[in-house]
Amino acid sequence: MLYAVVADKLDKWLWIGYGLIIMEGITLLVFKFFCPLTILARKYSNSTKDNFDIYLPNWLAKYTKLIYSGIVAIILLIIIYRLLD
C-alpha cells in the first residue's frame, strides 16, 4: 500500500487493502484488541510473553499494532494529499 501511494498507483488493489485493514480492525474490536488466533494459541501455551506465537523479538512483538497503525496512518495522509492534489 505504501508503494501504491508513493508511486501514485491508486487502483483497486489499494482500496482492497484498506478494506482488509478495516475488516481486521473490526475483528480486533470484537475480540477486545486480541487476534482470535492468539486467543486460540493461548490455550496451548503457558507463556505470557507477547511473542509466544510469532517469530519476532519480544520488544517488537509488543508494539506491532502501534507500528502498523502508524504506517497505515502515514499511507492515509499521503493518499489524502494525492487525492487533493
Rank of each mutant, 00 (worst) to 15 (best):
S47R: 12
P57C: 11
T38A: 01
L76T: 13
M1N: 06
Y18Q: 10
R82A: 06
A61W: 04
L20G: 02
R42C: 03
L56I: 06
S47P: 01
L14C: 04
F33M: 09
C35E: 02
W59Y: 14
S69W: 12
I71H: 09
T48M: 06
I22A: 05
L2V: 07
Y63I: 15
L2E: 06
A4F: 12
D11G: 07
K49Q: 07
F52C: 04
L14K: 06
L28D: 05
T48A: 03
I80Q: 03
M23A: 15
C35F: 08
Y55H: 06
P57W: 12
L37P: 00
V30M: 05
G70I: 07
L66T: 13
N51D: 11
T38V: 08
Y68S: 12
S45M: 04
G25M: 03
L76G: 14
Y55L: 13
L20C: 12
G70N: 05
R82G: 02
L40M: 15
D85R: 09
M1C: 03
Y44M: 09
K32T: 04
E24P: 00
L56D: 06
G70Y: 08
F52E: 06
M23R: 05
I54T: 11
W13L: 13
W13P: 01
V30P: 01
I54L: 10
M23T: 04
G17N: 14
I78H: 04
L84V: 10
F33A: 03
G70F: 08
I75R: 02
V6P: 00
K32F: 11
A4L: 15
N51Y: 02
K62D: 12
L66F: 09
L83K: 15
S69K: 11
F33S: 09
I74C: 08
F34H: 11
L2T: 10
Y18V: 04
M1D: 09
L40H: 08
V30T: 08
F31C: 03
W13T: 12
M23P: 00
K65P: 05
V30L: 11
L37T: 02
I21V: 12
F34E: 15
E24H: 09
L14G: 04
Y63L: 12
S45R: 07
D11W: 01
S47D: 15
I26S: 00
G17T: 14
K43W: 13
S69G: 14
G25H: 01
I16V: 14
L14S: 05
L84D: 09
I79R: 14
Y55S: 11
L83M: 15
K9R: 15
D8N: 14
A41K: 14
I22E: 00
M1E: 06
F33K: 03
I54Q: 12
I54R: 11
T48V: 08
G25Y: 02
E24N: 08
S45P: 03
T27F: 00
A61G: 09
V5G: 04
L29V: 05
R82S: 10
A61D: 03
V30Q: 00
F52Y: 09
P36W: 01
W13D: 13
K12A: 11
K32S: 13
L56H: 06
Y44S: 11
A41S: 14
Y68G: 00
I80D: 06
F52T: 05
I79N: 14
A73V: 15
F33Q: 11
L37S: 04
V5N: 02
